[in-house]
Design a protein around this nucleic acid. Structure first.
Length: 421
RNA sequence: GCCGAGAUAGCCAAGUAGUACGGCGGCCGUCUCGAAAACGGCUACGCGCAAGCGUGCGGGGGUUCGAAUCCCUCUCUCGGCGCCA
């Protein structure tokens, strides 16, 4: 959600944003319904004032033992007028909030303008692209040869884009999570394992309506949705709270499985475990003062970069273009890891500053002193590790001539000093 | 799942139909070299430059001229019983 004052006072800023994102949005309808809404607030408030006055009069007359029947009928009229006005107001509010909840976030000035990923900007590169003196396999062949993944039976049991992890890949998955948590704990993140299902109100705080259809699974007959990432549950964790300024920034490491419909991804990355309905992830989630959020954004990116350097995974950092970014983010960096089997860099991390957009939806505010006005804080999120994608990169980049996989040295102690799969 | 008791502001808490009692904590001020104590003000949210007005007693609905208060319903918490990894 955007600041209604900004929409009212500087609509051109919003129009520029919509153009940069190449998003169709009826801004005039939003502005009009906001005006209508404000008008109704004034009208109903005025009528309520009258109602309160009459109620007071009645109470005084009754206490004095006087006859109040003539004012009683006046009260009746005021009450019925009010309830009529209130129901009109309700429908205006509904229209307004529906629009207000679908307008995308602002775009930061440093974001390259463009319609899709072709306008993304490479910021930096780390590590050599691995070269091989033998014919290499992709992660699907490797995992089949070493009996690490069973896709066929997963398809039988659950459907496409599911998998059974097997043997040492199960251990590698656990090692990555364990190492990732230790890594963030050392940097003084609070570790959190959130609910894997959350209610509609919470989900709506973190996610835009369209994404509900495209990515989020709903539990039948329950007000529950499977989280697409722990970001959803982490953002909602502090909903409707007023935090103390001195608590900020709050840095959380959320660890959870993630569940995604992948509804719009027909045919893309169809085989293997690169794009799946379920995977484990550690997420960085930060609540911060507005003035610190850009600094925190760079910091989160740096944390993720360090992590992949430690894992010896060659990667590059991309600054996403206005058209490629998610709607809740004002600026997003992706880290793309080299995947030798695909001979390409592929996304493994997405690091976003959402400004006060989620905080407004979730009503998360802070203040330094008790009688100060409250302020919306800023939220940021970044992947630390989505295990399946990193395992693809490890399998493909670290494959050996004799068909095995070298385990990155930082992970070996987590795997009983095993050096190879 | 069943039975019982609850949910009021940051915390505690009074209030069984007629303007939300009071306490603690916090913030600001007076006093002081400074602090403590004492005293005064402020301390949920919305609209408004402000004066002010409105909303708010777990959520939703109903009864009533009028609901924190009566009724229905849902959620959550606590206690007891049952079931369960």
């Amino acid at each position: 959600m955007l600041d209604p004052k900004l929409i009212k006072e500087k609509p051109q800023v919003i129009r520029d944003m919509l153009k940069a994102r190449a998003v169709d949005f009826d801004l005039d309808a939003l502005i009009e319904s906001d005006q209508k809404r404000r008008g109704f607030i004034l009208k109903t408030d005025e009528l309520r004032k009258k109602k309160n006055q009459v109620a007071l009069e009645i109470s005084q007359k009754k206490k004095a033992g006087e006859d109040a029947s003539s004012i009683l009928s006046e009260m009746k009229t005021v009450s019925s007028e009010l309830s009529k006005l209130e129901s009109e107001q309700e429908s205006v509010e509904k229209t307004y909030s529906k629009l207000a909840l679908t307008i995308p976030n602002l775009v930061h000035e440093s974001v390259p303008i463009g319609v899709d990923e072709n306008a993304n900007k490479e910021i930096k590169k780390w590590g050599e692209i691995p070269s091989f003196d033998f014919k290499i396999n992709d992660h699907i062949d490797i995992s089949e040869n070493l009996d690490l993944v069973d896709l066929e039976r997963a398809a039988k049991v659950a459907g496409a884009r599911f998998y059974y992890l097997k043997n040492d890949l199960v251990r590698l998955n656990q090692s990555l999570i364990h190492y990732g948590l230790d890594f963030l704990a050392k940097k003084e993140y609070s570790l959190v394992q959130p609910p894997y299902m959350i209610n509609h109100e919470s989900m709506e705080g973190a996610v835009i309506a369209d994404d509900f259809e495209e990515v989020i699974y709903k539990i039948e007959d329950e007000d529950l949705y499977m989280i697409g990432t722990s970001e959803h549950a982490m953002a909602a964790m502090r909903a409707k709270e007023i935090l103390e300024g001195k608590e900020l920034p709050l840095r959380y490491a959320g660890v959870s499985p993630c569940f995604r419909k992948e509804a719009g991804a027909h045919g893309r990355d169809q085989k293997g475990i690169f794009r799946v309905h379920q995977f484990d992830k550690i997420e960085q989630f930060v609540f911060t003062r507005p003035e610190d959020s850009w600094k925190e954004h760079e910091k989160m990116l740096a944390v993720a970069e360090e992590f992949y350097q430690n894992l010896e995974i060659s990667h590059r950092v991309m600054l996403l273009s206005s058209g490629d970014m998610g709607k809740v983010s004002a600026k997003t960096y992706d880290i793309e890891a080299w995947m030798a089997g695909q001979n390409a860099y592929r996304e493994i991390v997405s690091c976003s500053n959402c400004l006060d957009y989620q905080a407004r939806r979730l009503k998360i505010r802070f203040r330094d002193k008790t009688n100060e006005d409250t302020q919306y804080l800023h939220t940021l999120n970044s992947t630390l590790i989505a295990t399946t994608r990193v395992m693809v990169s490890i399998m493909e980049n670290f494959q050996t001539k004799d068909g095995h996989i070298r385990i990155p040295s930082v992970l070996q102690s987590y795997m009983g000093n095993q050096k190879e799969i």
